[in-house]
Amino acid sequence: MDSARARILARIKRSTPKGDEAVRIAAVEQRLQHPQHNLVPERGQGDEAHRIGVFTRMMEAVGGTVEVLDDVNDVPVAVASYLRNTNRPICPGIVRRRSK
């Protein structure tokens, strides 16, 4: 397999554009050491409020709902409230596991 490696790499090297090898190495090093920022679509940029807005719009487009909470500790109450308001039972599996 080592010889396969050598042969594959040698064939690739032969096929690459002829030029200064140091320049090729430098181009690769530059790209890996200092990854460039590629294009990020406009909708993924902007401040946090903008991005939350985009997320909410896209979540709602696929039938989801979004509720913004101020505190992470409010999550259980919000989830329970959502389930109650949409007439969905709390998963029995979760209840059983908690009661162990």
């Binding site: 594959i8 790499l9 690739i12 690459t16 554009p17 190495i25 181009a27 690769v28 679509p41 406009e42």
Partner: peptide, 24 residues
């Protein structure tokens, strides 16, 4: 930005193919 992303995607792969041995 779809078409601009296609251009970038093409350029990325062209760059790789010119330096494939080094990246491998």
């Amino acid at each position: 930005e779809f078409d601009a992303l296609r251009d970038q995607a093409r350029d990325i792969k062209d760059h790789v193919l010119s330096h494939l041995d080094l990246y491998l």
